[in-house]
């Protein structure tokens, strides 16, 4: 009888450990994803659902209206496991973040498709590049590429030719002050002359 009891305890513990490990191991969200791949570090296609949140609010309880109105980094609390997924990048490839694409869905449930990225030992979780987004329940996806249009609205006086990052006034101000290498204009001048 004692042996039976010990066996039952062992079975319960083993089942518990298996179930816990199953939750702890990263889930595969690639099924059904149509995300474009780029061969990035630790890249995994991933489509999932969750709620768009202001990350600072989610962590600290400091919650301005409308998820900070575009001034804060946004994320998604994934429905399947309650994980806070940091959304770092939109689908555009001009050095663009994702806040403008997520903001219309502040505190709403969305479906997203994109890439989980990263395998750096200094960050023990992956960050997300959102490529497609829709409010949960809708059928049509939206491309996550609002950033450059939003930049034009924020910078109506940044006219001229070329991509936004060549015309952005804040970037231009820093480059004028500290140069491309950040060490001053004289260092830039010497290095460019040596490397042309």
């Amino acid at each position: 009888m004692m042996a039976m009891k010990n066996l039952a305890v062992l079975v319960v513990v083993a089942l518990g450990l298996v179930a816990f490990a199953g939750n702890a191991v990263a889930q595969d969200y690639s099924k059904g994803s149509n995300a474009k791949t780029f061969g990035l570090s630790g890249e995994q296609k991933a489509t999932f659902s969750g709620k768009v949140v202001d990350i600072h609010c989610e962590l600290s309880g400091d919650c301005p209206a409308n998820c900070g109105g575009g001034n804060r980094t946004l994320g998604i609390v994934r429905a399947s496991d309650n994980a806070l997924v940091m959304v770092s990048k939109s689908a555009q490839f001009e050095f663009n973040g994702a806040a403008d694409d997520l903001l219309p869905y502040c505190n709403k449930n969305v479906d997203v498709d994109g890439l989980l990225i990263g395998d750096d030992p200094g960050v023990k979780s992956k960050i997300y590049m959102v490529q497609l987004i829709r409010e949960t329940g809708q059928t049509d996806w939206e491309m996550a590429e609002l950033w450059t249009d939003a930049w034009k609205k924020r910078n109506p006086d940044s006219s001229g030719e070329g991509p936004w990052y060549r015309r952005d006034e804040r970037v231009a101000k820093q480059l004028k002050k500290e140069g491309y290498l950040g060490l001053g204009l004289d260092v830039d001048k010497k290095w460019i002359a040596e490397n042309q």
């Binding site: 940091m86 770092s88 050095f95 952005d168 970037v171 480059l175 491309y180 290498l181």
Partner: peptide, 17 residues
């Protein structure tokens, strides 16, 4: 570092964390 400084400015202005 210095090698990536200009790109780092672009990304920060672009809203990348």
């Amino acid at each position: 570092g210095t090698a990536h400084h200009t790109c780092a400015l672009w990304c920060a202005a672009g809203g990348i964390p």
